Simulated assay, not measured.
Amino acid sequence: MEPLLADAVAALAALAVAALSLITIVAHITATKMPNFHRHEEEKFFVNAEGKKESIPSIHDPPTKELSVVVPSYNEEDRLPLMMDEALDYLEKRQKRDPAFTYEVIVVDDGSKDQTAKVAMKYCKKYGSDKVRVLTLVKNRGKGGAVRMGVFSCRGGKILMADADGATKFADIEKVEEGLRNLQPWPDQMAIACGSRAHLEQDSITQRSYFRTLLMYGFHFLVWFLCVKEIRDTQCGFKLLTREAASRTFSALHIERWAFDVELLYIAQRLKIPIAEVAVNWTEIDGSKLVPFWSWLQMGRDLLFIRLRYLTGAWRLETSKSN
């Protein structure tokens, strides 16, 4: 029996090595060397409050605002108003307290099939197109692709990623701003502060099914094992970056779907960009676009490919300027 068991173990090990080798080859062959960034003609301008076209600025231009808020939105006509009301109420009050504070909110309509763009344009007309801009993408790129398009079109010295569902209390921007300041001095003016829900994990487990809890722990393990070891919550959509950090990391980003946060932080760690993780107030909002099993499966595949493609040199940390 023992020789048979040893042979079986050896056969399984050989099969695992062969499978990993095949996956590595596939990951390498199917990889694009540099991020595929392309703007359609319709994406090279935004429509202002008067209905006129204005050209999109570039991340490579000097900043003219203190803060840019990028809001990726796909079929968010129902959830977007609550988030925008809260964010703009906070930003307007802050500007009244400090007239030197300047901001813009960029809503990136990621090829929505509903009235997301129309809802966002109402805020553009109310607050003016210098404060609220709507960038409409020709087709759906995925959350990471939408955020990147917004980042490359912003004017802020600091750039905040914020989800359209408003799950994170917007006033907690002050917490991530403090986290960013505490990282000073910033090497090459680059730093990132990530909002985090890790402190809420035990409470969320009691509200989830065993299956979803298992998926969550499996994903966290893969993130830690393959890519990012120092950040407990990579997926919170509330992240603040300096303009230089955003330009460098998003210029090297390949993943455009849900796992883009992981690659973003993986790139940042490889570039030795300091990262802070800051606890924020977060409430689960109905209407998530994540499909529990298939989205986690896709993210698991992306995590493996991120690691293998950088490991084999299929992806390299080079920056490409995009307008």
Rank of each mutant, 00 (worst) to 15 (best):
T30W: 09
K272P: 03
T168E: 00
P57T: 02
N140H: 04
T24C: 10
A245H: 04
F221C: 11
K122F: 09
L311M: 14
Y310T: 11
T319F: 04
V47S: 02
E2M: 09
T249K: 08
V134W: 12
V291F: 06
T24Q: 05
I25D: 02
K125F: 00
A246R: 03
E50L: 12
A120L: 09
D85W: 05
T168Y: 03
Y310S: 12
G287V: 06
G166E: 04
I159M: 01
A10P: 00
L200P: 00
V134E: 08
W186Q: 10
H38A: 11
L15P: 03
S288Q: 02
V17K: 05
M84W: 10
L317N: 11
F101P: 08
P35K: 11
G313M: 13
V105T: 14
N140R: 11
L67E: 08
V71H: 04
L15G: 14
A276I: 02
L91A: 12
K122Q: 14
A49Y: 08
M121H: 12
H199W: 14
I192E: 03
N75P: 09
E77A: 15
D302P: 05
M1A: 15
S58I: 07
F305G: 05
A193F: 13
D172Q: 03
Y90H: 10
L4A: 15
P62I: 07
V47G: 02
L226S: 10
